[in-house]
Amino acid sequence: MERIKEVVYNENFHFEHQNWKSELAFWKDELKTFNNRLSELITRWTNKDVLKQLEHYQNEFILHGGVIEDLEETIEEHETSIAGHTITGNESLDVRLAKKHMEFRNRIDTQREIYNSLKKEFFSFLTKYM
């Protein structure tokens, strides 16, 4: 039985990295806007329960900002690895690096779900208290 080997090219990973970097930049921008909304609400509310929720969102946004930075660093590390392959004239990645990329794709997908859930929750909160 002959085994078929699929080749994954560096340019495909690079393209996906560029898309992820754009998405992460958008998230960072959104977090700035969300933090501005929090600042507005802090000046409007003195209710301890509302202020506690504001603090919760502030902490969530800080945590998510840290996750974004970690994801960006991982992308840069992978890009450096791709560049090393390209310099040596090897335009395809080995199985280990391809597997790492697939795992990272899953990590991005998971973070996307977490972030979208946080946004929905925050928008509901804003609807109630803005």
Rank of each mutant, 00 (worst) to 15 (best):
residue 10 N to I: 13
residue 69 E to I: 10
residue 44 R to N: 05
residue 30 E to W: 01
residue 65 G to F: 06
residue 48 K to A: 04
residue 118 L to T: 04
residue 73 E to L: 14
residue 81 S to C: 08
residue 34 F to I: 09
residue 14 H to S: 10
residue 61 F to H: 10
residue 81 S to G: 13
residue 93 L to R: 01
residue 3 R to Q: 14
residue 18 Q to T: 12
residue 7 V to I: 15
residue 11 E to H: 13
residue 110 T to P: 00
residue 57 Y to H: 06
residue 49 D to A: 07
residue 13 F to G: 03
residue 74 T to A: 12
residue 25 A to P: 05
residue 124 S to T: 10
residue 76 E to G: 00
residue 120 K to N: 14
residue 55 E to V: 10
residue 62 I to T: 14
residue 43 T to F: 13
residue 15 F to M: 11
residue 73 E to T: 14
residue 35 N to I: 00
residue 39 S to D: 15
residue 85 H to P: 02
residue 16 E to C: 02
residue 69 E to Y: 05
residue 34 F to Y: 15
residue 112 R to G: 05
residue 82 I to M: 11
residue 117 S to W: 11
residue 95 V to C: 04
residue 67 V to I: 15
residue 12 N to H: 08
residue 52 K to N: 02
residue 2 E to N: 12
residue 95 V to P: 09
residue 5 K to P: 00
residue 76 E to R: 12
residue 37 R to P: 06
residue 24 L to F: 05
residue 127 T to C: 07
residue 78 H to L: 11
residue 92 S to C: 07
residue 69 E to C: 05
residue 20 W to P: 04
residue 29 D to Y: 00
residue 59 N to I: 02
residue 95 V to A: 12
residue 52 K to Q: 01
residue 35 N to F: 00
residue 111 Q to I: 07
residue 33 T to D: 15
residue 64 H to I: 05
residue 22 S to R: 01
residue 100 K to E: 13
residue 63 L to R: 15
residue 126 L to I: 11
residue 7 V to M: 01
residue 2 E to G: 12
residue 104 F to L: 09
residue 31 L to E: 05
residue 89 G to F: 01
residue 99 K to N: 13
residue 53 Q to S: 14
residue 93 L to G: 01
residue 37 R to W: 15
residue 3 R to W: 08
residue 101 H to I: 02
residue 117 S to I: 10
residue 104 F to R: 01
residue 66 G to D: 00
residue 38 L to W: 08
residue 61 F to S: 05
residue 72 E to R: 11
residue 112 R to E: 14
residue 125 F to I: 02
residue 7 V to D: 00
residue 24 L to S: 02
residue 15 F to E: 13
residue 9 Y to W: 13
residue 111 Q to C: 14
residue 40 E to V: 14
residue 46 T to P: 03
residue 94 D to S: 01
residue 112 R to L: 13
residue 36 N to I: 06
residue 2 E to L: 10
residue 15 F to C: 03
residue 115 Y to V: 06
residue 94 D to L: 08
